[in-house]
Write a protein that binds this DNA or RNA. Structure first.
Lengths: 146, 146
DNA sequence: TTAGATGCAAATGTTTTGCAGGGCT
DNA sequence: AGCCCTGCAAAACATTTGCATCTAA
């Protein structure tokens, strides 16, 4: 299992112990859309993994501090989501019809850092962009209704 | 007080009663950066206005449903913020040093809707952009330290 | 061996809700 | 008058924390 080694390196490089929970959480989030702590916990729990919800909270927090995960506020439901931090820069499109989360490869932000610096004296470190609208499936369904 | 009338029209146009709490909440948020429910409540409470926290929650929710306010998740602190919905399109820069929220007039998004449509078949209705970094004040303070 | 991880339960903080009373139209 | 709005207190959730126990290094 190649991911196992990748995860173990990620952890040891940052002076984190290679524990069962941390590797399980990384396995769930790798190649997944952003998940809530409860979703991560439930996924593992249903797979008969024994672990505690508060440990998942602590794990996500630690992995975020170390830059392995990223905490995102995509929705207004008051629940935080975590995603595997990819080296590539990705944004999301969220469907208002079915809440599907679609990763977007392109970035609309462009060279805006320069404007932020010259106009506002602001030194940009990162940005989040979320795009809301309707996905292909929902557009099709709406058309079928008519 | 011209705002009073503006607010009353906003409410009556949407079949909402013109109540004291609603007008007070709108007064606080108009021309303000996004505030948490507790900040809105405290501001009014300190001005000797008698009202209940749960009413402020309900008011913000109602005004958001009617498109008068907008609920935003700018920070990772797990607390929702509301802002007065401006007709102009505004984004925010959030300072990682002092948490100051700076409104940004320009929009880096440009004509990205077209790419979303052609590449993802996604029909964009809105977008949120948050920019994180360091404001002028924090940059200056950091330089002084050195 | 020992600092760091975990499990459990209790605490915290935010947001929601039920219900009775009050205010707007 | 009638329905919507509000206050209060309690409930519901998400998240954090204290402490004893365990475990990777």
């Amino acid at each position: 299992m190649p991911d196992q080694n990748e995860f173990e390196n990620l952890l040891t490089n940052r002076n984190l112990k290679r524990t069962k929970t941390r590797i399980l959480v990384l396995e769930v989030l790798k190649d997944s859309s952003p998940k809530t702590v409860d979703e991560i916990f439930s996924t593992l729990y249903q797979n008969h993994m024994k672990l505690s919800l508060s440990t998942v909270y602590r794990t996500c927090e630690t992995l975020t501090e170390k830059g392995i995960l990223s905490k995102v506020n995509l929705t207004d439901d008051g629940v935080a989501r975590y995603e595997y931090m990819k080296s590539e820069h990705t944004h999301h499109a969220i469907c208002l019809g079915c809440n599907k989360i679609i990763p977007i490869d392109d970035c609309p932000y462009g060279q805006f850092d320069q404007i932020m610096k010259s106009k506002y004296g602001f030194d940009v470190k990162s940005h989040h962009i979320e795009i809301y609208g309707y996905c292909q499936d929902c557009i099709r369904k709406r058309e079928e209704k008519e």
